[in-house]
């Protein structure tokens, strides 16, 4: 058992989140996938903090959480207002900005 396992786990979680962003159409689920990606990064940060013996990694992970919270608030608000005008939460329906 080494820290590499944590890192690989984080990489795989990150990838799953990425694929989720790509294949899911419900904007809320897409958001959840982004949260998953952020969490995997947090795991990496915590792991490296432990590896280097400094607390900074944890601090940054904390900041990531705060920013993620802010992002969720704003993002969900955007989804709400889009839903109000278009009656849809699908990211595919928001495709007016194109060629």
């Amino acid at each position: 058992m080494t820290l590499t396992y944590y890192l690989v786990l984080a990489a795989v979680l990150f990838t799953i989140g990425t694929v989720g962003v790509l294949v899911r159409r419900n904007a809320i689920v897409v958001f959840m996938c982004i949260e998953l990606m952020l969490n995997s990064v947090n795991l990496t940060l915590v792991t490296f903090a432990r590896s280097t013996g400094t607390i900074d990694g944890q601090i940054i992970a904390l900041f990531v959480m705060v920013v993620a919270a802010a992002e969720v608030v704003v993002g969900l608000a955007i989804i709400m207002s889009i839903y109000r005008t278009r009656s849809s939460a699908s990211v595919d329906d928001v495709n007016l900005l194109k060629y």
Binding site: R24, R25, N26, A27, I28, V29, F31, M32, V72, L76, I79, M80, Y83, S88, A89, S90
Partner: peptide
């Protein structure tokens, strides 16, 4: 998330 989901995404299963 669940709140918003119940508000908007409830009937929008992929």
């Amino acid at each position: 998330f669940l709140f918003v989901l119940m508000l908007v995404g409830r009937d929008s299963a992929d």
